[in-house]
């Protein structure tokens, strides 16, 4: 038994017939062939599959595709044009906020909502704000810095230096 659904992903509307058990992350990766959204665990722990659903960050491995019927989704492919960088993408690049890049799309989508709710977060608020997104490479320091950079840019403020700080 399949269900007919209509979803908007990065501004484009898609109509599909899907099995009820199809996970949203698989719909995005397999049916729509957008592979920037990743899978890193089975238990809703890692956040590699984070996308925005109606502007809220969600873990697309724990949502059924049928539940996204009528919703508006944003994936990493939709945050900027391919030859452009939005403030978060720029912040991650300028501050070395990524190594292997696997957690990065999820981090960016989560940080997008974080800054939406809290345009000028403290370091502690950022750390708690990304606590559902695991990164195994960076040690998080530069992810925090990247989000602060984007926060400043969003508010029209000159961000802190992107040179590494050493003691």
């Amino acid at each position: 038994m399949t269900k007919h659904i209509k979803i908007t992903v990065n501004g484009t509307e898609h109509e599909l017939d899907v099995e009820p058990r199809l996970l949203l992350v698989h719909l995005i990766r397999e049916n729509l062939a957008m592979t920037g959204t990743h899978i890193g665990c089975d238990t809703t722990s890692c956040g590699a599959c984070t996308i925005l659903m109606d502007g809220k960050s969600v873990k697309s491995c724990t949502i059924l595709a049928v539940q996204a019927n009528g919703k508006n989704l944003t994936t990493i492919e939709g945050v900027s044009a391919e030859n452009e960088y939005n403030h978060l993408q720029e912040g991650f690049k300028e501050n070395h906020g990524l190594h292997c890049g696997f957690c990065t799309p999820g981090m960016i989508l989560r940080a997008t909502e974080l800054l939406e709710n809290n345009p000028d977060p403290t370091e502690e608020e950022i750390r708690w704000g990304i606590s559902g997104n695991l990164c195994r490479c960076t040690g998080y320091n530069n992810i925090v810095k990247a989000i602060k950079y984007a926060s400043a840019k969003n508010r029209g403020i000159e961000p802190a230096s992107t040179e590494p700080e050493f003691v």
Binding site: T37, F92, C100, G101
Partner: peptide, 23 residues
């Protein structure tokens, strides 16, 4: 030089090519 990474562009745009992306 703290050169910004050349590989970042594709990862930041969801264009990395990991093994599960291969079809």
């Amino acid at each position: 030089h703290s050169m910004k990474r050349k590989e970042d562009g594709r990862f930041l745009h969801g264009q990395g090519n990991y093994v599960d992306d291969i079809k």
